[in-house]
């Protein structure tokens, strides 16, 4: 997959994952599930760098430092949190859709 190729192995990505690993266990679990979901949905920001994902780590680091429970930071409906986060972003599915419309 393209996104993986672009980010895997890169220094930025390793530094990012190191921050994830420093989070408390419950935050790590939620982070990893969020990342998996976002890669599937495929907002275009994912291929533009780690900004989207590292923003989430920023948020989680702050929550963890304040001793909050992870779901009190994201809300119980983590999917809703993710969707809200990428609400204005185009996904690969959107791009494909536009391509289809142009082809007509």
């Amino acid at each position: 997959m393209r996104i993986q190729d672009m980010i895997e192995g890169r220094k930025e990505w390793r530094a990012h994952m190191a921050r994830v690993k420093a989070l408390p266990q419950d935050y790590q679990i939620v982070y990893k599930e969020i990342q998996r979901y976002l890669i599937k949905v495929g907002p275009v920001e994912l291929s533009e760098g780690t900004e989207l994902l590292s923003g989430i780590v920023d948020l989680f680091e702050e929550g963890a430092a304040g001793g909050q429970y992870v779901l009190d930071v994201t809300g119980r409906d983590v999917a809703a949190f993710c969707d809200e986060l990428i609400k204005d972003s185009k996904t690969y599915a959107d791009l494909y859709q536009e391509y289809l419309e142009q082809k007509k």
Partner: peptide, 28 residues
């Protein structure tokens, strides 16, 4: 929750309605 506000802040920043600065905090 924080997450709700976070998604709003991301959008405000993307739409260039706010300026941001990182400042050290005494905790975390």
């Amino acid at each position: 929750v924080e997450g709700t506000v976070y998604t709003i802040l991301v959008r405000l920043e993307k739409n260039k309605l706010v300026e941001t600065t990182k400042k050290p905090s005494d905790m975390g």
